[in-house]
C-alpha cells in the first residue's frame, strides 16, 4: 500500500478523490450508487478510456496528438463505406478495418513528424483541420444511419433486469476497453519497445545515443494511438448507432485533459494506464453526479473545468514547504 502511494502518487491521489466524491454522491444522490448507474458510467465512458490509453502512448513518447478524435470520425466513415461495399461484414472485419485505418492515420502523422522534422502538436493540429475539412467536404455534413446490423446491435456481456423493470448490464465497449487497457499496459510496461518509448520521451538524445531507432518510436507511438482511435470509433458507432461527421469534435481535449489528470506528462516519459482510466472516470463521475443532483447541464463544463484545474494545480503544490523552497533546487 505504502509502496503503491510512493510509486504512483498521482494515481493514489485520484483514487482518494474519486472515493470521496463517490461517498458524497452516495448520500446526495440516492440513484448514484446503483448497479444501473455504475454500469451506465462504464458503458458511456469506455470509448474515452480507449482513446485515453491510446493517446497515453504518444504522450509517454514525448509527443501530443490532437487529431485522433477526428481520425476516429474519418475511420467511421470509410469503414461504413467499406462494409456496405462488401455487403455488410462482421465484427472481425470491423476490428481489422477500423484498427487498420486508424493505424494508417497514425502513420501519416508519424511520417510527417519523422521525415519532415515537424513538432507533433503542429502536425496533428494541421491534420485535425485537414482531415475534418476533408470529411465535411466529402460528406457535405451528412450523417449515415443505414449501417450493418452487427455494428449497431448492442452486444451484452451481462444483462440484468432491475426491480423496476429496466434493463442494465455491461456491453461490448467495456470489454474492448478492458482489452485496450491490458494491451497498452503490456506494451508500455512489459516489452522493451514500451520501455524505449518511455526512455525516448524522457531523454530523446540519451535514447538516440543508446542506439534506439527514433523513427520506429514515432511510428509505434502514433500507430498505437491511431489503432485505439479507430477501435474507439468503431465502438462509438455501436453505442450511438449512427455516423455523424462532427459528433466527435472536441472530444480530443476532454481525453487529453483526462490523461494529463491521470499523471501523463506533457513532455514525455511519465504516465500510466491506471491514471488514464482514473482521469476519465473522475470527470465522468463528477458529471454524472451533477446530473443526478439536478444541477443545470450548463454548469457541467464549468465544474469539470474547475475540477481539472484544482487537480492539476494541487499535484505540483508541496503542502507546507512550497514558499520556503530555494529556487535553485528545481534543477
Amino acid at each position: 500500500m505504502r509502496n503503491f502511494i510512493r510509486a504512483y502518487p498521482t494515481e493514489a491521489r485520484l483514487i482518494a478523490v474519486i472515493a470521496v466524491i463517490m461517498l458524497f454522491l452516495s448520500f446526495a444522490a440516492p440513484s448514484f450508487l446503483t448497479l444501473a448507474n455504475l454500469t451506465a458510467l462504464l458503458n458511456n465512458n469506455a470509448v474515452n478510456v480507449i482513446w485515453a490509453v491510446g493517446l497515453l502512448v504518444v504522450l509517454i513518447a514525448g509527443g501530443i496528438d490532437i487529431s485522433f478524435a477526428v481520425a476516429a470520425s474519418v475511420v467511421q466513415y470509410i469503414a461504413a463505406h467499406i462494409f456496405m461495399s462488401i455487403g455488410g461484414g462482421n465484427w472481425l472485419i470491423g476490428f481489422l478495418v477500423a484498427g487498420g485505418l486508424g493505424i494508417l492515420v497514425g502513420f501519416l502523422n508519424a511520417s510527417l513528424i519523422h521525415f519532415f522534422r515537424i513538432i507533433t502538436i503542429v502536425v496533428t493540429i494541421a491534420n485535425y483541420n485537414a482531415l475534418f475539412g476533408l470529411l465535411m467536404f466529402v460528406t457535405s455534413g451528412r450523417s449515415i444511419y443505414d449501417l450493418p446490423d452487427w455494428w449497431t446491435t448492442p452486444v451484452p456481456l451481462i444483462e440484468r433486469q432491475s426491480a423496476d423493470g429496466t434493463w442494465y448490464g455491461l456491453y461490448l465497449p467495456v470489454a474492448i476497453m478492458a482489452l485496450a487497457i491490458l494491451a497498452t499496459w503490456f506494451l508500455i510496461n512489459r516489452t522493451t519497445t514500451g520501455r524505449q518509448l518511455y526512455a525516448f520521451g524522457d531523454n530523446p538524445e540519451g535514447a538516440r545515443r543508446a542506439g534506439i531507432n527514433i523513427g520506429r518510436m514515432q511510428f509505434i507511438a502514433f500507430g498505437w494511438t491511431g489503432l485505439m482511435a479507430g477501435i474507439g470509433g468503431l465502438m462509438q458507432v455501436n453505442i450511438v448507432r449512427e455516423v455523424v461527421p462532427n459528433a466527435l469534435m472536441g472530444r480530443e481535449l476532454d481525453v487529453l485533459a483526462a490523461a494529463v489528470l491521470g499523471g501523463a506528462r506533457l513532455g514525455g516519459g511519465r504516465g500510466s494506464v491506471l491514471g488514464c482510466f482514473l482521469g476519465v472516470m473522475l470527470v465522468a463521475i463528477t458529471q454524472n453526479g451533477l446530473n443526478l443532483m439536478g444541477v443545470s447541464p450548463f454548469a457541467f463544463k464549468m465544474v469539470v473545468g474547475l475540477i481539472i484545474l484544482a487537480a492539476i494545480s494541487t499535484s505540483n503544490f508541496k503542502w507546507g514547504g512550497a514558499s520556503r523552497k530555494a529556487p535553485t533546487e528545481a534543477k
Binding site: R195, Y198, A199, G206, R209, A210, G269
Partner: peptide, 14 residues
Amino acid sequence: WQDLALFSEMTVAE
C-alpha cells in the same frame, strides 16, 4: 558524457 544521457523518469535498475 557530462549530461550523463540517463532517463530521469525511469528507475535506477532500468
